[in-house]
Design a protein around this nucleic acid. Structure first.
Lengths: 155, 155
DNA sequence: GTCTATGCAAACAATTTGCACAATG
DNA sequence: CATTGTGCAAATTGTTTGCATAGAC
């Protein structure tokens, strides 16, 4: 029933596989088109964040006549059903990556190639004195750095 | 000379006062115009984030013929010299607030009115096991919630 | 066959740029 | 008075919408 099926194994970091993505689309009543199949592959085979333009470029390789609005439409749709997560880079604008649905965690992001690793530590588990009487709803914790490859190549 | 005279005191949370903002502009070689004076006041008298439109609206009150591009130019300029800090809200787009230059801290942000409180706890002080061999450069930790007033008014 | 997805063109929003005039230092 | 700031209009970029046709179920 659920996407977990019987003996299903999550890909290494708990990302959706492209099959899972397609299943999710289907479950939400969206049709599985060739473009969407390709879109799913693009995101499952990519560890980092992709801009709409990046996605468009990759799509164009297989579908030379693909249009920007289709890319935008699908990116928005996939974000709405939590298959993708959005992130706004101050320098690079809005980007997308496959979201990790199975557990709470935070990200270590390479500011050069944008490859993203997850880690389990969450600061909200600490007892910390917060000012004011806010009703806490959400939080965001990200660490930025240079991954091993980018450290070497940036010398 | 400065508005606080000799025994100058930083405003409660270490924000720049508008005088300090103007001094910074001056120090960077920018001229002090009436609009910029007003702009400084707008940001020092506001705890939350302001969109370019918000700023434009407030500026229009005093300078009915102010133009959007001047607002943008000045916002960009002030961000570049670290007088303002930018923040991209997923829902509301790019916004600005007076930056706190004197010490490291993080923010508790009301998602309704965007009033922002600072707190001292920093998760990077913890020993945490991070994956990969990233060279850590930066981090971001924000907590979102509803401030007391907004909890009441949102019932 | 019905209904959704796509591509095209056009609309729209946010931000930036070029230029002549106004204002600051 | 020399130079920077401003307002106006237009350009640019990123994203969304309307509509006819192609494609999925």
């Amino acid at each position: 029933m659920t996407k977990k099926g019987m003996g299903r194994v999550l890909s290494e970091q708990g990302h959706n596989s492209d099959q899972e993505m397609l299943a999710t689309m289907s479950r939400h009543g969206w049709r599985i088109t060739d473009q969407r199949r390709t879109l799913a592959q693009i995101f499952t085979s990519n560890e980092g964040y992709l801009s709409p333009k990046d996605v468009y470029d990759q799509m164009s390789l297989k579908y030379p006549s693909v249009s920007f609005d289709t890319v935008y439409r699908n990116l928005r749709m996939l974000s709405e059903m939590n298959v993708l997560e959005q992130f706004y880079f101050m320098e690079g604008g809005l980007k997308f990556k496959a979201s990790c649905l199975d557990h709470h965690h935070h990200h270590l992001i390479c500011i050069n190639c944008e490859k993203t690793l997850t880690f389990e530590y969450c600061p909200m588990e600490q007892q910390m004195a917060l000012p004011g009487n806010y009703k806490i709803l959400n939080h965001r914790f990200e660490i930025y750095g240079l991954c091993e490859e980018c450290q070497e190549s940036t010398v």
